[in-house]
Every structure is written in structure tokens, then in C-alpha cells.
Amino acid sequence: NDGTEGEDGKIKIVAAHNQTSPDSPYQAGLLKFKEVAEEESNGSIEVEVHAGTIGTEESQLVEKLQLKAADVVVVSPGFMTQTGIKEVDLFSIPYIFTSYEHWESAVDGEVGEKMADIINEKSDNSFKLLGYWTAGVRHYYGKKPLESIDDLKGMSLRTQTSGVIADFWKTAGAIPSSISWGELYQGLQQDVVDSSENAYPFFVQQNHHTTPNGKYITETAHDYTTRFLLINGEKFDSYSKEHQEIILKAAEESVKAEREANNSQEVEYKEKAIEDGAEVNQIDREPFIEIAKPIQDEAAKEMEAVDLLQDIRDLAEEQK
């Protein structure tokens, strides 16, 4: 039953993300997508939004997108690499983006277009990129504030334990350790792990900042995160030109809405963390960036995305 355009010219789009909370920026983004698509098409497009109901794992959402069991999904680069597209992981290398503006100019410019082409080609048109969302900027939080990079020495840190991200933290002196997200609160409370890293809305909602091993936040800003808003390419091609344009427009609006919701939550949850007694400090990020550079080079070579890395770095230079 993977029919597309109905006989009456009506289409239905199943759109899904993996966050169950109704307050998540993803939900704001997809609801905007729904609103615009349905309004602009006078109801000939129907969008059904699933907030975690057809998969709380991103890997499931990607599989569903390929099978056409979902039409529009939000996923992070890490899960895309499992589909065999190595290049996407470039966006999750630490310090590849040095500011929010840098990130925005990259994904909304040529770099973003190149990446979209790679995704579309390598997936045989199963995935077509509709826009770049964000899940915020990730910082360090732990049992002591970082005054310099040396403070990381010997600290256990909850992060990915393999790949580029793990390499970065290892080189910085920390010991990456794996604890599931759901068990992290207790882990920080009971000294199972010394520290962690994430964006404000995520760890503050989980009350990590109220634990002894989570109350010192250092704004390392090591990852301006990227999320891909994808549609099944074959299905997209089967829609009428008119519908395609409406979908692209709805996607554009959803990008704005999602980023806006995310940015205001970043501010809101940072304030909440401080109100609750967490301490926030800034740090000179240059030493971190220096460590990250060779790791970025190495990873880009492995991903066969050296040119793309150069493009991103050039953009950073321009903005200086």
C-alpha cells in the first residue's frame, strides 16, 4: 500500500520525529510544516505528525523513511552514517563549526547544498533533504568547572565511546564512557560518571544540572548540532509540481520555526539552570580547537570529504 497521489489529487504525509515531549523544538518545526502545507494546498495535502509514536529511535525513523512507512523524518548525522553515507558525519565532528552564524552560513549555503546532493545520490533518491534543523549547541557539564583544558585530565565523561567524537575527548584528556541517556541522571547523582556534555534544553529538562556531578557548566560549545529534515525522494518525485513547491515552502518555514524554538529554549533553559543553582563559566576555546584540527583532517580524509571540510573552514575565515 505505498500509493502516493490519490485519485482525488489528495496526498497524505506521515511526518515523524523521535522526541516524545510536546515542547520539543522538533514538534514546533513539524507542526509548522503541517500548518503551512495544509494551508497552502487548501487541504489537498494532509500532514500527520508523530511525536515519538512511530519510533523513539532515529534508526527506526530512517528505516521507515526508506520503506515509505514515513514520508518526512528528522534525524541526526550519526544515524545517517549507518545507512552507508559516510560524509554526513562530517557535521558532527567537534569544533567543525565555530559559531552559530558559521553553522548557519554553512548549512544554508553551498556546503549544505553539496551535502544534500551527496545524501540524495548515495541513497538512490530514497532520501531528499528538505532543510537543516538544529538540536542546539553542546557544552560540557560536570563536577568541576573547566578553567583550562588540563582540567579534563582523567575525568570520565559521558559521550560517544567510538569514532571522531570519542577521539577528540580522549585527546583532550577525558575518558569517554557509555551510559544510556535514561540512566545518566542517576549516574551523575551517584558518581558513576564525572561529567557529560549536551545542549541546555536536553540536560536541564532531565535535571542533570541539579546533581553534584552536573552542576558546573562550562560553555565549550564544541558542537553546533545539525539535524536533517528528510523526505522520501521517490515519493517526492511522484507528487505534482504544485505539491512539491508547497512542500518545499512548508519545509522552509519549518526550518525557521524549529531554529527559533530551539534558540529561545537555549536561553530559557540556561536561565533555569542558573536559577536552580548551577554555575556557568566561559573558557578560551582555542586550545580545544587546536586539538580538534588534526582530528578533523583525519576524519574528513576517511569520509572522503576533504573538500567539504575546506569549504567549511574557508567560511569561518571569511567571517573573522
Binding site: 528505516e63 526508506q66 520503506l67 550519526g78 549507518q82 545507512t83 552507508g84
Partner: peptide, 13 residues
């Protein structure tokens, strides 16, 4: 069908 669609997906670890 599932096997052929996803045969080449890789394990995360």
C-alpha cells in the same frame, strides 16, 4: 523485502 532494503546498513559499533 526488509532484508534486501536494509542489507547494507551497518551496525553502529
Amino acid at each position: 523485502q526488509v532484508v534486501t532494503e536494509f542489507w547494507n546498513y551497518t551496525w553502529a559499533s
